[in-house]
Amino acid sequence: MHRPLWELAKPAIDCKAAATQAAKHPADHIALALTLFAATRLPILPVVLIAVLATGTLRWLSAS
């Protein structure tokens, strides 16, 4: 049986939970900004490497 159309329009995640998760790691916001900046200037492989290294490094620095 098909779901009603109004149920399809409901968000898939809880917005409060997403905001809480994003607030847990402010380093992720910095890494995202670096990744977006790199994505405007570089091909995909360097962007992926920058994203992984930036996220890992910033989380490691913020943990200590």
Score class of each variant (00 low, 15 high):
P4H: 11
L5Y: 10
L5K: 13
L5M: 13
W6F: 14
W6P: 08
E7F: 11
E7N: 10
L8G: 07
L8A: 11
A9R: 14
K10M: 10
K10R: 15
P11Q: 06
A12H: 06
A12Q: 10
A12G: 07
I13Y: 08
C15Q: 11
K16M: 09
K16P: 00
A17N: 06
A17E: 14
A18G: 04
A18I: 13
A19V: 13
A19M: 13
T20Q: 09
T20H: 05
T20G: 08
A22K: 07
A23V: 03
K24I: 13
D28C: 01
H29P: 00
H29R: 08
A31T: 01
A31Q: 00
L32H: 02
A33V: 14
L34S: 02
L34M: 14
T35A: 12
L36D: 03
F37V: 15
F37G: 12
F37E: 03
A39T: 10
T40K: 06
T40W: 06
T40I: 11
R41W: 09
R41D: 02
P43G: 09
I44P: 02
I44C: 06
I44K: 03
L45Y: 07
P46Q: 05
V48K: 02
I50K: 01
I50C: 02
V52Q: 04
L53A: 15
A54S: 14
A54Q: 02
T55I: 01
T55F: 03
G56W: 07
G56P: 00
L58G: 02
W60E: 00
A63V: 03
S64Q: 06
S64G: 12
